[in-house]
Design a protein around this nucleic acid. Sequence first.
DNA 1: AATACCCTCAACCGCCGATAA
DNA 2: TTTATCGGCGGTTGAGGGTAT
Length: 241
Amino acid sequence: MAHNCCTKEKVRKGLWCPEEDEKLFNFITSHAPASWSSVPKLAGLERCGKSCRLRWMNYLRPDLKKECFSVEEETMIIHLHRMLGNRWAQIARHLPGRTDNEIKNFWNSCVKKKLISRGLDPNTHNLLPAPKTAHINYSYHLNNNNYNNQYCSSTSSSHESSPLALFSVAPPDDINVDHVPFIHGHGDTLVINNIASAAGGSVMEEAQQVGGLLAECCIYSSDRLLDFDDSWRLCDFSYLG
DNA sequence: AATACCCTCAACCGCCGATAA
DNA sequence: TTTATCGGCGGTTGAGGGTAT
């Protein structure tokens, strides 16, 4: 059923001009309209009430942030999307000054592509079928004052080696936070399967206690994005040629 | 310089649930 | 209980700007 305000004649559509913005802004900030459907007539606008509401909510509201999304906001959006799916309005409630529309656009134009490039399905946040896999020979050693030079290793076979390949690592059953993998290759993406369960679900907290520095790598578990923290670092692995 | 293609994002559309009459 | 209206939401569109050819 059409909204009452939308069925009236002389309803403008399309982009808002500065004069319209000024009329709407002045009206809303100086009145408390009972309903959005009454706004166009009272504010002297040839728009429907829905359009006025949208313009106010998404653009004119004084509490809106105008700057680009921060890294923290992006991380928050990814986390919330994993939990809530495409419930943009709910996600927006956790990000003050951001609108559902803005977050939706940001997701569709930027975040989606980033996740895909990291080998993750943006809808499910699970791993996509890897276009390339490289079984690697990897070793773990601690990079921490208390545990320096402790070392253990595990091996697997290798199909190919490319410094920028997306690769999947199946850690040994006994992986734990005493055995933090060391990664070379900044910007690479390392996918660690089952690390959360292997570490009792608190690998990040434990890893922070282990200490070290953070490498510029992207690290994911197969079922959730792991939170980075500057207090620990993944260090070394080597490909089998 | 001209054209095609791509990307971003503001705005619209259609649907849904809540509420009032 | 039914109907009309509204606010709110998610999906989609298309204008306009940027980039590649």
